[in-house]
């Protein structure tokens, strides 16, 4: 069975419109101007990943919310599950930028880390 997917390559400002055809193991990329487009197209259909930036509740902090992110890109289909987990988290100030807030989130190997320092009140 073959499936095709239309994508826009974001590896450079050119923004080529790609057509990626998947036939079992065989993946064809069309519409790319350079070979980076092929790499991008293949990754997007086989294993699309994103960094998730969000916030968690912080108690006793200067501000009510602490911005966090996944320490590395995680599979796209897990985005909402990860959001659900992260939304349950509460931390206590002070926090330092880079502190690990949740270790190995949903077994992805990525940690949730603080993206700023937060002084306590």
């Amino acid at each position: 069975m073959t499936t095709t997917k239309e994508l826009i390559c974001i590896s450079c400002p050119m923004g080529c419109h790609l057509k990626v055809t998947v036939d079992g193991e065989d993946i064809q990329v069309e519409g790319n101007t350079c070979k980076n487009g092929i790499t991008y197209g293949i990754e997007e259909v086989t294993n699309p990943k994103r960094i998730i930036p969000t916030t968690v509740i912080v108690e006793n902090g200067k501000l009510p919310r602490l911005p966090v992110k996944t320490s590395e890109a995680v599979p796209k289909e897990l985005i909402f599950d990860i959001m659900n987990e992260v939304n349950k988290v509460k931390v206590k100030a002070p926090v330092k930028m880079g502190d690990i807030i949740v270790e190995n989130i949903l077994g992805t190997g990525a940690n949730i880390i603080a993206t700023r320092s937060m002084e306590s009140l």
Partner: peptide
């Protein structure tokens, strides 16, 4: 930058995809 918690900052300056608060800090 404090409210721009998304990543995509500093690709040129630090060669990393930082979030707004990280770049600011």
């Amino acid at each position: 930058l404090n409210q721009c918690i998304h990543n995509g900052f500093g690709l040129h300056t630090f060669n990393e995809q930082l979030t707004g608060p990280e770049y600011a800090e």
